[in-house]
Nucleic acid binder design. Structure first.
Length: 269
DNA sequence: AACCTCACCTGCGGGC
DNA sequence: TGCCCGCAGGTGAGGT
């Protein structure tokens, strides 16, 4: 579920609480939630490490330690929550818990899709990820060039984390609506002007969602357990049958790449 | 190589 | 009330 704006919000909250603290205990309740290394090594290597920084890359949270990086991907239902270490925990799906002095960092994840990975270098581990949408090197020209031979729906390309990092199903639909582009259009068929509109929409939609601290449809919470408020600003996602905010005609849901896609067939061409 | 589908899990809401 | 079905924001393995 969490996409770039939600992960950014979580990372900011974690940064505030965790930077400078030292990991004093590690509890792994679900071994499958650790991608690498093995749980024993994961625990041993984390103990005593001080948190240097907390960042985001695409949909990954990067917790920078002294000699390694702890990566967290929340996938659909993952949450990273900070709570007082002495507080009784009422969460039902805690997979990993780290104690840092008098704080506890809880990785809660109902569907067990999320993963933690302790790696020597986040930059190397995430090298295959595409550029951040706010990176200056991303321009309408570079997007157009990289789409030239791509005969797949533009929405599918937006969801490909190697194309740009951080876009998921909700914001892909919102961005395409803002840019007046139909989700099923083949990527190679977009004009230069459409790539300009797409990039502008990508940046403004993500920025607005970050300002709203993300979209909460069900599970998403920030590091302090708070919901986002961008769900009220969504224009198409989840709004099948409701009027398009731009032209008033009904929003339509289609199936694209196995996922629900919401769009306005009248004003998205 | 490029693209598509499905499996991975669990929970929840709607229909019967 | 309770059961069953379909659906869910992400990703990558495997098939075409």
């Amino acid at each position: 579920m969490p996409e770039l704006p939600e992960v950014e919000t979580v990372a900011r909250g974690l940064r505030q609480h965790l930077v400078g603290r030292t990991i004093t205990s590690v509890e792994v309740y679900c071994e499958g939630s650790i991608a690498t290394p093995c749980p024993e090594e994961f625990r041993a290597r984390l103990l005593g490490q001080q948190v240097r920084a907390v960042d985001r890359r695409g949909k990954f949270i990067v917790i920078g330690l002294q000699d390694s990086d702890l990566l967290v991907h929340l996938r659909m239902t993952g949450q990273l929550l900070v709570a007082p270490a002495d507080q009784v925990c009422s969460l039902r799906h805690v997979r990993v818990a780290l104690t840092l002095g008098d704080l506890r960092l809880l990785f809660n994840d109902a569907r067990k899709f999320g993963r933690m990975a302790l790696v020597p270098s986040a930059v190397e581990w995430l090298a295959a990820l595409g550029p951040e949408p706010f990176d200056e090197q991303v321009t309408a020209s570079t997007l157009a060039a990289r789409s030239r031979n791509r005969r797949l729906p533009i929405k599918s390309l937006l969801l490909d984390q190697r194309f740009v990092a951080g876009v998921g199903n909700i914001y892909a639909d919102e961005v395409l609506h803002a840019a007046c582009i139909a989700p099923g259009r083949l990527a190679c068929s977009l004009s230069y002007a459409e790539f300009e509109a797409l990039l502008a929409a990508l940046r403004s939609e993500l920025q607005r969602a970050i300002a709203d601290r993300g979209t909460t449809l069900s599970d998403y919470r920030d590091a302090d357990g708070q919901s986002g408020r961008h769900q009220q600003a969504l224009r198409v996602y989840g709004r099948e049958g409701q009027p398009c905010p731009r032209c008033g005609r009904p929003i339509v849901r289609i199936r694209l790449g196995g996922r629900s896609s919401y769009h306005c067939p009248h004003c998205q061409k």
